[in-house]
Design a protein around this nucleic acid. Sequence first.
DNA 1: TCAATACTTAAGTCACCGCTTGACAATTAA
DNA 2: TTAATTGTCAAGCGGTGACTTAAGTATTGA
Lengths: 115, 115
Amino acid sequence: MLKYQDIDATLRALAEPTRRAIVERLSSGPATVSDLAAPFDMSFAAVVQHLQVLEGCGLIRSEKVGRVRTCRLEPEGLAPLADWVAQRRAFMERRFDRLGDLLNETDPPAPADES
Amino acid sequence: MLKYQDIDATLRALAEPTRRAIVERLSSGPATVSDLAAPFDMSFAAVVQHLQVLEGCGLIRSEKVGRVRTCRLEPEGLAPLADWVAQRRAFMERRFDRLGDLLNETDPPAPADES
DNA sequence: TCAATACTTAAGTCACCGCTTGACAATTAA
DNA sequence: TTAATTGTCAAGCGGTGACTTAAGTATTGA
């Protein structure tokens, strides 16, 4: 029951159309393994393997009652990825701000873009 | 010069530590190919291939002057991914809201979680 | 002009990943 | 009890992708 959510595993998991489709399906509500497998033109076992990957990186969680396993999204599973993206954009913003400051200063002695 | 930014290519590109490190480096400013290659314990050609992937999915853009190619982040390259993540979270929020509505209604005739 | 720099391109190797099949286990319905 | 449903597990196959080496081009500095 690994709880570690590293962004590497999350991105590798989402970089796969089937798994992304599963996440999209689950974002509108829980579903059983059979439900999730139904739309796909691939073996049941293949879908189960995808679910294991998604659960392994903390994007979903599942619970078995009787012979039926129900999967649902882990609410905070996407947080690390969202944070990473936000941070990249923040860095870029800061850069633009500094560039703006430079351009707004006194007469331009050197219009240097950093090399 | 493909301009299409599909989320599939973006995620595949970012699901690779080296490429993600390059994006992180570039989010604090432009750099030449040599600059970008220097920190990595791998061949120059391998880094160039990574850059081609990043440029191919619209995450970076590059420009060659003389014999030097300078790379920089494409400001809107991460937007589709950010949107996708935001949308998944929005769907989940809506679900919780509806659930809350149900729970806040009159006496519970059926505490049905959707199956 | 010559050599060094900064890439570019192509071909080949290898590991991993997505998928299949097949056998099995556990629960439920008839 | 028997059969059907629902999922689990393991082994193996094939394609893709990350990397290497090697050869080539174009620009720059001495």
